[in-house]
């Protein structure tokens, strides 16, 4: 009787163990498959986005920086500033509002000043700035 019980337990463990191993073998690749691979093209360090004389004072330009949208603003006194255009609230893409002199997010009426600081609405953090480089006539934007 004792032996039988041991035998049965042994079988139970072998069977249970193999079933667990089988399940792992099936589900591990599936779970891994569901994770999207990291995109390599995201590693952009600097992009050329236009020429100085193409952008008048008090206006803006949308550009792409790798996989992300960016926004370049030229202030009233001709200064260039660039930011990641992704709103820090829930990921919408911001725009320059000339009448209000702010960077505005249409999704929930979030506002940023022209330094990228969140000044009203739900955005919890300032916009991520880029560095703007002028070389001759060309405008370059790069990560800080």
């Amino acid at each position: 009787m004792e032996v039988d019980k041991n035998k049965r337990n042994f079988l139970k463990y072998v069977l249970g163990g193999s079933l667990t191993a089988l399940a792992a073998m099936i589900f591990y690749p599936i779970v891994e498959y569901l994770k999207p691979p990291k995109t390599k093209s995201a590693e952009v360090s600097s992009v050329k986005i236009g020429k100085v004389n193409e952008i008048p004072n008090d206006s803006s330009l949308m550009f792409r920086f790798g996989t992300k949208p960016g926004i370049l603003v030229r202030t009233q006194n001709g200064e260039f500033r660039a930011f990641e255009a992704t709103c820090t609230h829930l990921d919408c893409t911001v725009q320059f509002k000339q009448e209000m002199g702010v960077i505005w997010c249409a999704c929930h009426n979030g506002k940023f000043d022209l330094h990228g600081r969140n000044i009203s609405g739900p955005p919890p953090r300032p916009l991520t700035p880029y560095k703007v480089n002028i070389q001759g006539e060309d405008i370059f934007v790069s990560k800080i």
Binding site: M62, R64, P69, I71, T93, A106, C107
Partner: peptide, 10 residues
Amino acid sequence: DPFASAPAGI
């Protein structure tokens, strides 16, 4: 257009 600004009325 993933690189355009969000329009009003989302």
